[in-house]
Design a protein around this nucleic acid. Structure first.
Lengths: 350, 350
DNA sequence: TTTACTTATGAAATCGGTTTCGAATAGTCA
DNA sequence: TGACTATTCGAAACCGATTTCATAAGTAAA
């Protein structure tokens, strides 16, 4: 911040003394909370600039019980999906004069509990939970109680759904996402479309599956359960690879695969490759998340983009609205968009 | 933290009153800084448990000028390399009773300056800078001055090198990394080995290039500048793709490529693929970073692993040592290791 | 039982800001 | 110029912990 004479940080009192005013006046200059005679203000501002003085955030937080900090509890930033979302939040927060702090739960509920406590201790003004327990449809009673306890002090914003709490929710319109993919594929003539990866107790996955069925119904295409591997799996490369292998043993007539995210899609592509099945000539592959990997694979992946910037901004906007006690709709949706690349093409004629 | 009666957080004073002791005693129980008669301690501990009381971190930090927080300034967590390193730091810090906060500079010096200031304001006990300006060999005077200014208050640990500062350095032994790759490739019979990606003003890249030349010399292999694309490029997919295309126009006799990281390697692989060159039968491809992508590509990538856990631990250990004023060697190296997968094989006989 | 010494504890200062409240100063109008 | 109101400003309390210092209590030795 500033060296002071010999390493000790400068305080508001030092500035006050040198400017010949009271600390209160310096504080007023700093926060613009009240008018200060121009000559004094300028003197104080000059000193602030001279020493590059930055007020101690801890003292500030203690005094006004607003820390201008938003805590983000993510499942795992090593997943590029969360990393992108976090960076988007960081940017939006900075523009709004807020700071974000990140913790990773690594998917363990015990960590979520611990880190939630830590965020409370730090007196963050709001907490955004990205993924993790809040994504589960069947949230445990204890977790709901914990969140409710936290909520009595700090607003909590989640990307999933937490029945039994008054959390605000900002999330992707998964139904729309599935609709975009299905429209795209069906427009290309695909009728036998497989679903790979994920678990039904995760809200987004559940919704996608529902929409899948609905669209089939609307188009009078029979629902073939053997094409659908959307439960009991995970969201990783291995799942895509394994489930695609299984599908290929059962089916020879599918023409498209919707993977639950880019990781899974890469597993699917590996499996197809090993079976010498061409993408997209024989089978089209599409997925969700549109991480940078979508650009790097061969062929490049058609994927649903979650508009991370907008998503992050909505998360932060909602957080700040709640901090400031402004009314907001309890649920805000982010509209996904489709990025068509090389991995999807016309259904082959058989 | 705790509900209190109606939303207000419990303080040490509330506990003290209810336990019939002074706040000082409660503090002593909390910090174990002094002995407290068992009966009183138990009473206090019972209340702490009853209300699930957690002391206010801000007040604590203000009072003892130790926040038990380490700031991490990373270039971009969306890069899995930094994400892995950050998570490793987070884990190591947690075990040591510290908390880490993350900021992303997104490669912009202005952001680095701003965020460095923010970290100072927050009174973090130490700052770890991952990548960014500190990686540059030619660090600007102003940046060195800034770091020195910060260092007068807070220890700074960097993963690069900052001449003119007394920063502690913890970094990868890049020479060793290059040696591992070269030994591996040369053991497989490769003699014409290309280098792709990176810039020479980045320390790690510079060192790798040096070692590359040295090993060629030791093995009496002539240095062919046209095989070396290790300057003026970036660290991304595009660079790998573009530079590999260029190389293929010039050379038909190279048998191996060392890419500067996994991203770049994927670009290289795409280029090779489009030229119908088989990996590793015709050309072997190896790289650095060993991110999860190395497992997902076809063929799986031989890559240098940076032992993120150890790396993170050393960063945190060094930070804490400096915070506590313990002497430590100013430079600590992390030893990389080689993970052999499918993308490297015997040199083809021509 | 008294004296000497150790240990436990509370009162109060401190960290560095913000904010309330009342006093002092400046500005307005007659 | 005097009376009255509007601004500006400083003193002091406060946020919630830690820590020093002096006192009270407990223990051991004489």
């Amino acid at each position: 911040m500033q060296k002071g004479s010999e390493g000790k940080a400068i305080t508001i009192y030092d500035i006050a003394k040198e400017a010949g005013v009271s600390p209160a006046t310096v504080s007023r200059v700093l926060t613009r909370s009240a008018k200060v005679r121009p000559e004094k203000r300028e003197k104080v501002e000059a000193l602030i600039a001279k020493y590059n003085f930055k007020p101690n955030v801890l003292a500030k937080g203690l005094a006004d019980t607003r820390t201008k900090t938003i805590g983000v509890l993510a499942a795992d930033v090593r997943n590029p999906y969360y990393a992108s979302l976090f960076v988007a939040c960081e940017q939006a927060a900075r523009e709004a004069g807020y700071t974000v702090v990140l913790y990773n739960s690594l998917g363990k509920t015990e960590n979520e509990v611990e880190l939630l406590g830590k965020l409370q201790q730090q007196k963050v003004d709001a907490i955004i939970q990205l993924g993790g327990r809040v994504d589960d449809l069947s949230s445990s009673i204890e977790y709901v109680e914990l969140i409710n306890d936290v909520m009595s002090t700090i607003p909590v914003i989640v990307t999933g759904k937490l029945d039994g709490t008054r959390c605000h929710v900002v999330r992707i319109d998964s139904m729309k996402a599935m609709e975009l993919l299905m429209d795209h594929l069906m427009g290309l003539g695909h009728r036998k479309i497989a679903l790979v990866g994920g678990r039904q107790d995760v809200l987004a996955t559940f919704e996608k599956s529902q929409m899948y069925k609905q669209i089939l119904r609307e188009n009078k295409i029979p629902y073939d359960p053997s094409l659908v591997m959307d439960d009991g799996g995970s969201y990783d490369f291995e799942t895509g690879y394994r489930q695609m292998n299984e599908l290929l043993e059962k089916h020879t007539d599918m023409t498209a695969v919707i993977a639950v995210n880019d990781f899974t899609a890469m597993g699917v592509m590996k499996s197809l490759n090993e079976h010498s099945i061409r993408i997209p000539q024989d089978i089209s592959v599409v997925s969700y998340d549109n991480t940078y990997m979508a650009e790097m694979v061969m062929p490049k992946l058609t994927s649903i983009d979650y508009n991370y910037e907008e998503y992050g901004r909505k998360l932060i906007d909602t957080s700040i609205a709640m901090i400031e006690g402004r009314k907001k709709d309890a649920l805000r949706m982010v509209t996904p968009s489709l990025v068509v690349r090389e991995s999807s093409g016309p259904a082959p004629v058989r």
